[in-house]
Design a protein around this nucleic acid. Structure first.
Length: 323
DNA sequence: TAACCGTGGGC
DNA sequence: TGCCCAAGGTT
């Protein structure tokens, strides 16, 4: 959960997740929909799918016993070099190194390492000094200490240098470059994509959701049907084996922009209220769900933030058109 | 190597 | 408001 996600954001999710899945065995036995439901809103949903897969591997390949070597841990889905090092150093007391955002910042400043840390050459240099500093005794305390140094004093903006215990040995302090380190990511223009979401509801408020493929954006989550902007209402209804006579009301809500890490998505919401339910929905990856019950634990489905917004902010019905 | 993967905090 | 970034990893 903590990968690329701030601690304060994680805490609530962690507590609810651990209450629902207290052991590796219970996580491994649970349906993926329930796992993703508890991940809803956290983002990077591959982490949830990988954690679920890793629990199954630990249960079935390691007899429920957590593997303890760097190689075995890195072989688990979702665990890379840094997370494996964190598990070994913090949970197992082994001699192992980590390199998270905090440690990168502390080391880049302490050694005056210029260049974007995502660049291979810079990353190799950071890993080299990270391992060189890691003591063989008290590894867990050192590891927590250097992370906390980055989280409390050596912060990204306006670091508290006067109170830093490493001040006299800090290269960025000597050269006055702490404000420029670590070097920022080279910026690139974000492409803009557009898509149309059809929010189809029945008189009893049940709303149609589709499960997305397990890979790609919002993999495994459920959203209202997403189609390209050329898809007309008639074509979409025809896809559901519905005729325009089933349609009670259509509201084309205001397009809004959702910003991701690497692109923008212009969302066109189209609300369709049906007069009567279709006899069946052919696709088995589609379900009718009452939005008010999704948070009530009896509908354990993962929902993206955009899906939550589309379901929560339904425009008011137009009386004249309702019938 | 570089693109991809989400959401919220903070300025 | 728009931008950068966060206890990174996978393809």
């Amino acid at each position: 959960m903590l990968q690329q996600t701030q601690v304060a954001t994680v805490i609530g999710y962690y507590q609810r997740f651990m209450q629902r899945f207290p052991t590796v065995a219970q996580l491994a036995e649970s349906p993926i929909d329930d796992v993703l439901h508890h991940w809803t809103g956290l983002g990077y949903y591959a982490r949830a799918r990988n954690l679920h897969r890793a629990a199954k591997i630990i249960e079935h390949e390691y007899a429920g016993e957590m593997p303890a070597t760097q190689e075995q841990l890195e072989a688990l889905p979702g665990i890379g070099r840094s997370t494996a090092g964190a598990i070994r150093a913090l949970a197992m007391g082994q001699h192992a190194s980590i390199l998270d955002g905090n440690v990168k910042r502390v080391l880049a400043r302490f050694h005056g390492i210029h260049g974007y840390p995502g660049e291979t050459r810079i990353a190799k240099e950071l890993w080299r000094v990270a391992e060189a500093h890691t003591p063989k005794q008290h590894t867990a305390a050192y590891t927590q200490g250097i992370m906390d140094l980055g989280a409390t004093l050596c912060v990204r903006r306006k670091p508290n240098c006067p109170n830093c215990p490493m001040l006299k040995r800090c290269e960025a302090e000597r050269s006055g470059t702490s404000a420029q380190l670590p070097s920022p990511k080279p910026k690139k223009a974000k492409p803009v994509k557009a898509s149309r979401f059809f929010i189809v509801s029945l008189p009893n408020k049940a709303t149609l959701l589709e499960q997305r493929p397990m890979d790609g954006l919002w993999g495994g989550l459920w959203t209202p049907p997403e189609r390209n902007p050329e898809t007309t209402t008639e074509a979409f209804l025809d896809e559901l084996s519905l005729t325009p006579e089933h349609l009670g009301e259509q509201i084309n809500d205001q397009t809004f922009r959702h910003t991701f890490s690497h692109f923008h998505l212009d969302v066109e919401p189209i609300y369709l209220r049906l007069k009567q339910a279709p006899l069946h929905v052919a696709d088995n990856a589609a379900r009718w769900v009452n939005p008010t019950q999704i948070d009530a634990e009896n509908e354990p489905l993962g929902l993206s933030a955009v899906a939550v917004k589309l379901l929560a902010t339904q425009p008011h019905p137009q009386r004249a058109l309702e019938l």
